[in-house]
Nucleic acid binder design. Structure first.
Lengths: 227, 227
DNA sequence: AACATAATGGCACCGAGTCCCGTTTCATGT
DNA sequence: ACATGAAACGGGACTCGGTGCCATTATGTT
C-alpha cells in the first residue's frame, strides 16, 4: 500500500490525497481510542461510541484495525513491525543474540517522537485489562515467530531441525517483556533516579536501557540457585 | 472445593454424589467439545450445539469453563495446574533452572492415563485455529507468571528487583513451547524412530524427551552465530 | 466531463458471554 | 422417612464485538 504510484499532490508528505486521508483516519481512531479508554476504561467504551467520536462508521473501523484490542495496542504493533523490518535488513556476522538485542534497542530509540507516550498509555490500559494484556503477550509471541522466520531464511535451516532458532526468538522477546515490565513499573536494575518522572517513564532511552539490563541478566539467570 | 467434608457415600471415588456429578459433567463437556470441534472445526460448532450434545444448559457451561476456547484447551490447563503445584511443593537446593526443568518433565510423566490423547487433540485443533493457538500461548505465559510468584516466595524477593526470576520463568516456558512444538510436529533432535506413530506422537515419554532436548539446547542457542 | 475504482457507512445478522430468577436436586438434621 | 436449607441448574432476555451485503460517495484517470 505505501508503494508510490503517480503523485498528483506535490504538496504534503509526498502521499496522495487518499493515502493522507487514510493515515489521518487511522490516527484519529487510535488517538480517540486511547483517550476514551483512558478516561472510562477499555470495556466501558463500546465501538459504537468510539466510532461516533471519531466520526467514522462502525464498518470503517474494521477496515483499519482488526479488533477493539488492536486499536488500543496500536503503538506496540508499530514497534514490532519496525523491529522485524530492521532485523530482516540487518546484515552482519556475529552472535545472533547480540544482533537480536541490538536491533531491538535501535528500533526502540528510532521510534518516532511521541510514540513512547502512546505506548505507555497502552501499557497502562493493559495493566488493568486482562484482554489487553493477553493481546500484548500474543503480539510479542507473534513477533518471536516472525524473527524466527527471518533467522530460518538467513541460516537456511528449519527451526524444527535446530531448536536453537526458536529458543533465541523466545528469549529475545522474553527479555523484552522483562525490560518493558520494569520500565512501566518505574524500577531499574539498581536505582531509579528522580529524573524518571512518572508520566513518560523516562522515555525510549530508559526503556532501551531496561531491555539491555534484561539481556545482560540472562547468564546470571541461568546460574540462579535455590537455597 | 475438593476439600473433604462429610462423605455420605462410602462407594465410588470417595466423593459426594454432587461432586461426582460435577466431575462427570465437566468430563462430558470436555469430551463432547473435543469430539465436535475435531469433526467440524472449532468455529463451525456453536456453544448451543455443544451444550445440546452434552445435555446441559448454556448457562451451566459457563459455570464449568470460562470460555469456548477454555474447554477446547482443558488438557493444557490441567498440565499447568499440576506443574505449578509440583513446583510449589518441590523443595531442595540447587540450580533453579534445573528444578524448573525437572518438575516439568515429572509433571508430564505423571499426568493421568489418556491425558496425552486429549492434549494432542487440543494441539491439533490449535494448529488450525488462531484463537486457540493464542489461548495456548496466553495460558503458558500465565503459568510462567505463577512460577515466578512461587520463586518470589521461595527467595523472598521481588521479581522487579531481580530480573533473573522473570527471565527464568519465561525461559522455562519458552523451552516447553519449543519441545511441545517439535513433539506435535513429530520431529526430534536427531531422528524420529518409526515407533513415533502419528496419533499418539509417542506419548508423554517422548514429549518429556523433546522438552528435555529444548532445555539442553539453551546454552548452544545463546552461542549461535550469524554468518 | 465522464468513467473506473476504492473507500464509506447503514443495516441485518451471528454468536459469545452476562445477568436474573424460578425450579430442581442434593445434603443434612430431626 | 421427611422437612429444610443450600447449591446447582436452565430458560430467556440482553449487550456487544465482529462479519457480510450493498447502495452511495469520494478520489484518481482519461
Amino acid at each position: 500500500m505505501p508503494v508510490d504510484s503517480g503523485h498528483p499532490e506535490p504538496e504534503g508528505s509526498g502521499l496522495s490525497l487518499r493515502e493522507r486521508k487514510k493515515q489521518r483516519t487511522r490516527r484519529v481512531l487510535a488517538d480517540t481510542a486511547l483517550r476514551l479508554f483512558g478516561e472510562r476504561g477499555f470495556d466501558r467504551v463500546t465501538l459504537e461510541e468510539l466510532t461516533a467520536h471519531a466520526e467514522v462508521g462502525r464498518t470503517t473501523f474494521f477496515r483499519y484495525y482488526a479488533s477493539k484490542e488492536d486499536v488500543a495496542m496500536a503503538a506496540e504493533g508499530e514497534l514490532w513491525d519496525a523491529y522485524v523490518a530492521r532485523f530482516a535488513r540487518h546484515t552482519g556476522p556475529g552472535p545472533a543474540l547480540t544482533a537480536l538485542r541490538a536491533c531491538l534497542t535501535q528500533t526502540i530509540l528510532a521510534m518516532p517522537a511521541g510514540w513512547d507516550r502512546r505506548f505507555v498509555a497502552s501499557r497502562r490500559l493493559a495493566a488493568g485489562t486482562p484482554v489487553l494484556h493477553h493481546h500484548s503477550l500474543v503480539s510479542s509471541m507473534r513477533t518471536a515467530q516472525r524473527l524466527i522466520e527471518v533467522l530460518e531464511r538467513r541460516l537456511d535451516t528449519d527451526s524444527r531441525e535446530d531448536v536453537r532458532l526458536r529458543l533465541l526468538g523466545e528469549l529475545a522477546l522474553g527479555a523484552w517483556r522483562c525490560g518493558a515490565r520494569n520500565w512501566v513499573a518505574g524500577r531499574g536494575e539498581h536505582e531509579t533516579p528522580v529524573a524518571a518522572r512518572r508520566p513518560g517513564h523516562g522515555g525510549p532511552a530508559l526503556l532501551a536501557r531496561r531491555v539491555e539490563e534484561s539481556f545482560d541478566a540472562i547468564p546470571a539467570a541461568l546460574a540462579l540457585d535455590l537455597p
